[in-house]
Design a protein around this nucleic acid. Structure first.
Ligand SMILES: [Zn+2]
Length: 286
DNA sequence: CGAGACTCCTGCTGGC
DNA sequence: TGCCAGCAGGAGTCTC
C-alpha cells in the first residue's frame, strides 16, 4: 500500500506521538510478522524508549537506546494506528473513526506504552512485518536501497545514471526499482509518468534526454503533492489517527481506467508493466 | 547478469 | 441480481 508519501506521513505522525514514549508490553498475535521472534520482541522491548522515528524507502525505523532499531514494513495493506490513553473502551477495544473498534481481526501486533497509549499494527494481507535489529541488521535492510527522491542525493546526474543503467527496461520499472530510487511505488510511478507526459511503457533507450530531465523533476513534485495531502487512500491506507489521506481525488491516472483524462478528456487506459497494473493517457503521454 | 513469473495472504468488485 | 475469477499500495525468490 503505502508508498513514500504515505510512509512519510505515518513517520511524521508517529514521531509526534511516540517520541520518548516508553514501551510497556508487546503482544504478537501473528508470529510470522514479528522478527526475530515474538518472545524476543516481548523480552527486549519492554522498558525501551522511542528516541526517534525515521524512514528509509518504505520502511519506518524507530530508534531505541543501545543501537537497537524497531523497523516496520507495511507492504500493501499495513496500518499503524495509535490510540492515546483510552478513555472508555467499547467491548474491550477502542472505537476509531473510520476504522471501527481496535484491536480488530486485522490487528496482528500490539505495542502498549507506559503513557496508556497503544500502537496497533494491522494488516489485512499479512505481508507486512516488524523487525527488531541492531546496527548491522539495519544496515542489511537498507544497504541495497537507492537514493531517496526527496533528499540531496537525488540529482540529475544520479537519476540519469540510474535510468541508463537499464536501457531496455521500461521507464516505469526504473522508477519502481528500489535499488535505484527508493520509495516510488505503483501509484506514483504512473502519476510521475503522466506528469512528464511519458508512457510508463516507454523503453529507457527511446527517451530523449530532455524528456528524461522533465521526468526527473516530476517525481519529487508528485511525491510532495501527495505528501501535502497526507497520502492516497485507495482502500486500507490510514494515517496514525485512523483518518484517510486526501490525495485520491487528485490522482490523474492511477485507478482511473476508462475515466476521462483531466487534461484532454481521452479515456485513461490500463495495461500491465512488470506484473503491475499501469495507467496512462494515450493522448497526453507518448 | 537480467527479465519475467511466481509467491506470500485476504477481501473486494468488475464483468459476465 | 448473484457469483467468482481476477486484482490489489510490495518485494523476495526462483527459473530460464
Ligand atoms: Zn490526456
Amino acid at each position: 500500500m503505502p508508498e513514500l508519501p504515505e510512509v512519510e506521513t505515518i513517520r511524521r505522525e508517529l514521531q509526534r506521538r511516540l517520541l520518548v514514549q516508553t514501551l510497556r508490553a508487546v503482544e504478537v498475535r501473528v508470529p510470522k510478522m514479528a522478527h526475530p521472534s515474538a518472545a524476543a520482541l516481548r523480552r527486549e522491548l519492554a522498558g525501551k524508549k522511542i528516541l526517534a522515528v525515521k524512514r528509509r524507502a518504505k520502511m519506518l525505523v524507530c530508534e531505541l537506546p543501545g543501537q537497537r532499531y524497531l523497523v516496520f514494513h507495511l507492504k500493501m495493506t499495513g496500518q499503524l494506528v495509535f490510540v492515546p490513553r483510552s478513555g472508555r473502551t467499547v467491548s474491550g477495544g477502542h472505537p476509531i473513526p473510520n476504522l471501527g473498534v481496535l484491536p480488530n481481526i486485522f490487528t496482528h501486533v500490539i505495542f502498549r506504552f507506559r503513557s496508556g497509549g497503544t500502537l496497533y499494527f494491522n494488516d489485512q494481507r499479512k505481508f507486512g512485518w516488524v523487525k527488531l535489529v541492531d546496527a548491522d541488521g539495519l544496515h542489511e535492510l537498507t544497504a541495497h536501497l537507492g537514493m531517496e527522491p526527496l533528499s540531496g542525493a537525488y540529482t540529475w546526474e544520479a537519476f540519469a545514471r540510474a535510468a541508463h543503467r537499464y536501457p531496455n527496461r521500461t521507464i516505469k520499472q526504473v522508477l519502481m526499482d528500489a535499488e535505484r530510487i527508493a520509495g516510488v511505488g505503483n501509484i506514483y510511478a504512473d502519476e510521475s509518468c503522466f506528469c512528464a507526459r511519458l508512457r510508463p511503457t516507454r523503453r529507457v533507450r527511446t527517451i530523449r534526454e530532455n524528456d528524461l530531465r522533465i521526468l526527473y523533476r516530476c517525481i519529487p513534485r508528485v511525491l510532495q503533492l501527495a505528501l501535502r495531502h497526507k497520502g492516497t487512500t485507495r482502500d486500507t491506507y490510514r494515517r496514525v489517527n485512523g483518518q484517510s489521506g486526501y490525495m485520491a481525488p487528485f490522482l490523474n491516472v492511477y485507478g482511473r481506467k476508462g475515466k476521462p483524462c483531466r487534461r484532454c478528456k481521452t479515456p485513461i487506459v490500463k495495461t500491465v508493466v512488470g506484473q503491475r497494473g499501469t495507467h496512462y493517457c494515450p493522448c497526453c503521454q507518448k
